[in-house]
Design a binder for these strands. Structure first.
Lengths: 208, 208, 208, 208
DNA sequence: AATGAATGAGATTTCATTCAT
DNA sequence: GATGAATGAAATCTCATTCAT
């Protein structure tokens, strides 16, 4: 018995190791163009071995994106705080998001790339988006906000989630570009983020 | 006499033809992965001929992106209307943008991909972004708005431009996904766009 | 244990196989213009496989040239014979050289093509010519000859080596041409070589 | 009448212009890899026009080689001097050759490349080598030398010509390499040429 | 005669994936 | 399970030559 379980655990462990190495590799100099050979070398595994754990290269990137999203979700979930109003939580949420993107820019671009990926729920046939967990958190906050009256309720929750998420990713995308570009824009990173949230916040609050 | 001019015109015409065919090809089934061979076939030109007009595949996509941006700019510039307030023009602007993206989703994705591309001004060495013309329009409107008091002035013009543009692209990006995704979101395209602009508008207006 | 060694040996074997096939191919009808596709076909390997053993086409030709030079060196080194005078050894040397070129005309043309190739000594940074080993042998013989008084000593060893080698290659080049040409010349191969050596020999002997 | 002649003269003139430009081009940075486009540009002619004067690229290089050979022949023919012995004339001949190669290294490499080219005599069907005129001069000198007893007569004229010419080209080939190579050899250009002629001269003189 | 746009075969190289050991 | 040699489709780009104007 225990043997089988150990095997499974070991397999999962190996998978994680690969993923970790892949994370470093793909966020490195070669970017997403790093090859499976590169990955084999830096995991110190055979190239064929990689295919025992992942069906193809794409699935590795996808798994990395998922990992990134989980990380983001964890951080965001700490924001959930019933003692705060919805709008306050959105603000906190923004802070977390920005920090995350600054600390883990690679996961940022992965999320950017895979946020539209559709997964199938393990048992059910239900389709769900990879970013679903993150959107759920946003949804909860907004719901709270509409309930406590701090957030406008003339737009449905789902729509608001989609809007906020889209805008956030858009800003992220701009910020994730080379610094050169922001220099041409003649703008300051910090200010864009703050401005973005200011606009969002003023725009979300319910009008009295 | 006119011979030289005619030749030049013909050359430009051919370039346009190629670009047009490329537009159709790349927006088609194979997407941007369509090969130069594909393009040669569908233009009914030799592969070498293509390289007579464009130095490489990338430059074709870039030219397409530029074409898309010019189209967008033209449409947006019709919005400029001094008889309206800044905030009203932003609203009109949004309508145009959304219509454009719905009608020309392929150009949308190209703009999305190349918006960060840096061009060099023809004579000057000055670098400028491919989307500069569009940003200029946004800038003018916002300036008008800050002047006429309809738009908040606690954020600089440049920052506001960057923010608005980023958010718009973000929304665009979401909308440009497969419909399947929006179904999963359980949201309606139309509503996202309207909601986006509502949030933006409330957020941009100067607080009285 | 032996596994690793066997693998290495097999790899080297395969390399040799490729090299051998390449030798036949490039000396064949198409000459050096034979393509990598041709090579893939006649080795019965995938094109990609070739690139596993050689970084590019050039390197294959280079490796062949080196192989040829080694072969030549081996033969020439058998000439070294302290019981003979320098001038006698030069004569023997010439015989070997001529025989080699007649038996392996393809290696001849490769040497002709790559004799100026500069290699870097494995560990040292020292540059050395691909033909260095052959020149070394010539040098030794000439040195012996100057010491034993059979070879003129009014010209330095290095210069003599360069001169002899150049002349030999020149003759080789002439002989490596199509037979048609020598027919036009109206001369006989055999005689050219003999004549060459006679002239050289008389020219090398020290004047008494 | 004169019209036709003028046309012919003009055509030949144009041919010469092209050849001259080609000489500069091919001896330039790109070497023989310069393209027909390059040539069209630097002749300020259309690409198609070039093909009115030469059937293909090869023929241009060939014509250049011929031009070079003619130049060399002219210089060498000045050496012919009945008041000198054959062996003296060979020495002069060597001087001319060396000077030529130093002044016109490009023609040098062309001759090297095309010396084996076979032409057909204009009217006769007789085949002859492109370098024939040069070989003729060498032949005359050697003949004189054998007659006046200054040059060994145990080797036939034709063979001697072939030998001398081959050796000379061999030395030329070595000297035409990059300087880097001669530095590795550790030898001096000047000395190689002088040494070459010393060896040759001693080797040619008839033994008394 | 002059042109130069058009051609298209063909060359080299890359890399995700497979499979025999 | 692990391996890594082998694969081969596909991609980009070049350039001598042709031919309609």
């Amino acid at each position: 018995m225990g043997i089988k379980e150990r095997k499974i655990r070991e397999k999962e462990l190996r998978r994680k190791e690969i993923l970790e190495a892949a994370g470093k590799l793909f966020s490195g100099k070669k970017g997403m163009d790093a090859t499976m050979d590169d990955l084999a070398e830096c995991t110190e595994l055979g190239k064929g071995t990689l295919y025992l754990y992942f069906p193809n290269k794409e699935s590795i990137l996808e798994a990395l994106a998922e990992k990134g999203i989980n990380l983001l979700r964890k951080r965001l979930s700490r924001v959930l705080d019933d003692s705060k109003t919805g709008v306050e939580q959105i603000s906190d949420n923004g802070d977390v998001f920005v920090t995350f993107m600054q600390e883990k820019p690679f996961y940022g671009s992965l999320i950017l790339k895979y946020e539209k990926t559709i997964l199938k729920a393990p048992e059910t046939e239900e389709k769900l988006l990879m970013v679903e967990p993150v959107l759920d958190i946003l949804g909860k906050i907004l719901e709270k906000g509409q309930t406590d009256g701090s957030i406008r309720n003339d737009i449905g929750i789902k729509e608001l989630v989609a809007i906020l998420w889209s805008q956030m990713l858009g800003v992220l995308n701009t910020l994730s570009g080379r610094k050169e570009i922001l220099e041409i824009y003649g703008v300051d990173t910090e200010w864009i983020i703050r401005g973005h949230y200011r606009v969002i916040m003023s725009g979300l609050v319910s009008e009295k």
